[in-house]
């Protein structure tokens, strides 16, 4: 029996969805920041790339629609993947992203392990922080979509809700955007790529596959389950080809570098803006 050294973690559709999220998220962050910082040099520079305040707004709105569309398509895809006959296992089993009691236990166990108490938890396919990242998008996008829609169509909104809810919508839209952007850049990018075991780049989301040897350390229970049930053979994957690897290294570093520049500039220029 030939031994499997690499297995698939993310399908092509998952990776395309993630890429679409990266692109729309970046576009929305940049155009949104241009609008928020419009009275600073940084904001003016950003807006000039998009042809000014008005066209940056139009691009922001279209990118928002695109992101929402991607979100809906993703939900439909997830629903097709569910096995309704054994829905309990499908929803709360190890392959599901729904948080269970196990995640809370693993979180506690892992925090203790940080301080050298006890052993590191043996994770299944999805760890608690991966689940958190996933569900953060699930309340982030609907909130940003609804408040964004209210602000695009204020007159129509005021027919269903009092006009002052637009004040609230603007506050929520900004606060949620600030939370999402700072979380993605500070936590998601930094921890994802700049740990000693993942440096220089965590390739999993781009290559789609992981080395079994590496994953046996990080997600021991998942690998154990796969070898027990014999699913390992089905998930066998080839390592990514060189040109593709080069491509995503360039792309990944472009995004990471712009992300760090973005957060630095946003913090520096925040002293010159007034949140009206």
């Amino acid at each position: 029996m030939n031994t499997v050294t690499r297995i698939t973690r993310f399908t092509v559709i998952d990776r395309i969805t993630h890429l679409g999220l990266i692109l729309t998220f970046s576009l929305l962050s940049i155009t949104g920041a241009g609008r928020l910082y419009f009275n600073t040099d940084w904001g003016t520079a950003i807006l000039s790339w998009f042809g000014g305040y008005t066209s940056a707004t139009i691009i922001h709105i279209w990118a928002g629609w695109l992101m929402t569309l991607g979100f809906i398509v993703h939900i439909l895809l997830v629903l097709t993947r569910l096995d309704w006959r054994s829905w309990k296992l499908s929803l709360f089993g190890p392959d599901s992203l729904i948080p269970t009691a196990r995640d809370f236990r693993e979180f506690g166990q892992r925090v203790l392990w940080f301080f050298g108490i006890g052993n590191a938890p043996k994770f299944e396919r999805w760890t608690y922080w991966e689940k958190f990242d996933y569900w953060a998008v699930f309340w982030g996008i609907p909130l940003l979509f609804i408040t964004g829609l209210m602000l695009i169509y204020p007159i129509e909104t005021s027919r269903f809700l009092p006009g002052w809810t637009l004040n609230i919508a603007l506050l929520l839209h900004r606060a949620e955007a600030i939370l999402a952007i700072s979380y993605i850049i500070v936590i998601h990018l930094l921890v994802g790529h700049f740990r000693r075991s993942t440096f220089p780049l965590n390739e999993t989301m781009f290559s789609g596959s992981v080395s079994v040897e590496e994953e046996a350390k990080e997600k021991a229970d998942w690998i154990e389950r796969l070898s027990k049930t014999g699913q390992m053979q089905q998930l066998k994957a080839e390592p990514p080809v060189t040109w593709y690897r080069r491509l995503y290294f360039v792309f990944g570093y472009a995004v990471i570098a712009s992300g760090f520049y973005f957060i630095g500039a946003a913090i520096y220029y925040s002293q010159f803006i007034v949140l009206h």
Partner: peptide
Amino acid sequence: HQGATPSFATFVVHT
């Protein structure tokens, strides 16, 4: 704001 309603006018301009 073409079509502004009394409800719309409850937006607090001086937030």
